[in-house]
Amino acid sequence: MPQLQLLPGSISAILADAAETKTLTKSDRYGLLAAILDDTIEDDERRAIDRILRSVHRGRLSIA
């Protein structure tokens, strides 16, 4: 299985893009996957991921 590499600042970029467009793209979802699988992400990034997933669950963000 190929290694997923999280780019610096990608979580904040996904959060900002999702807030603007109200959708998560396939590349956003792969970025979130890489972040969730990364054991070294900071607590603030983990909370941002939780906010994104909660927004999807509540229907505030759609999946494109």
Rank of each mutant, 00 (worst) to 15 (best):
R51S: 14
E45N: 11
L4T: 04
D39V: 06
I41G: 04
L37W: 01
I52F: 06
D39Q: 08
G9W: 01
S10Y: 01
L37Q: 10
I11K: 07
L33Q: 09
E45P: 08
E45R: 11
I36N: 05
G59D: 07
D38R: 03
R46A: 15
A18R: 02
D43K: 09
A35Q: 02
T23Y: 13
A34R: 06
A35E: 02
R58F: 13
L4E: 01
L4M: 07
A19D: 15
T21N: 09
A48V: 02
I63R: 09
D44V: 08
L6S: 02
D28C: 13
K26D: 12
M1G: 15
S27K: 12
S12P: 00
L32V: 05
A13C: 03
H57W: 08
A16Q: 11
A19W: 11
D28R: 09
A16T: 11
L61M: 06
L4H: 03
E20K: 14
A48P: 07
R46W: 09
S62Y: 11
A64N: 13
A35M: 02
L7D: 02
L24H: 05
L61Y: 14
P8L: 00
L33F: 06
R46S: 11
S27L: 12
A35V: 01
E42H: 13
E45A: 13
A35Y: 02
Q3E: 02
R60C: 08
A48E: 08
V56I: 15
G59Y: 10
D17S: 15
D44G: 04
D38H: 04
R51D: 15
Q5D: 04
H57D: 14
L32Y: 05
I11P: 08
D50R: 08
I52N: 06
R60Q: 15
G9V: 01
I63Y: 07
D50Q: 12
H57P: 00
R29K: 14
G59V: 07
D17L: 10
D28N: 15
T23F: 13
D43Q: 12
L33D: 03
L32C: 02
E42L: 12
A13L: 12
A19V: 09
R47N: 11
M1V: 12
L4W: 03
R47A: 13
A34C: 05
L4D: 01
L4F: 05
L32P: 05
I41W: 02
D17N: 13
A35P: 01
L15S: 15
R54C: 07
M1Q: 09
P8T: 03
R58G: 10
P2N: 00
M1A: 11
Q5G: 01
L24W: 07
A48D: 12
R54M: 13
G31D: 02
I36R: 11
S27Y: 05
S55V: 03
S55D: 15
T23P: 00
I14E: 01
L24K: 02
D38W: 00
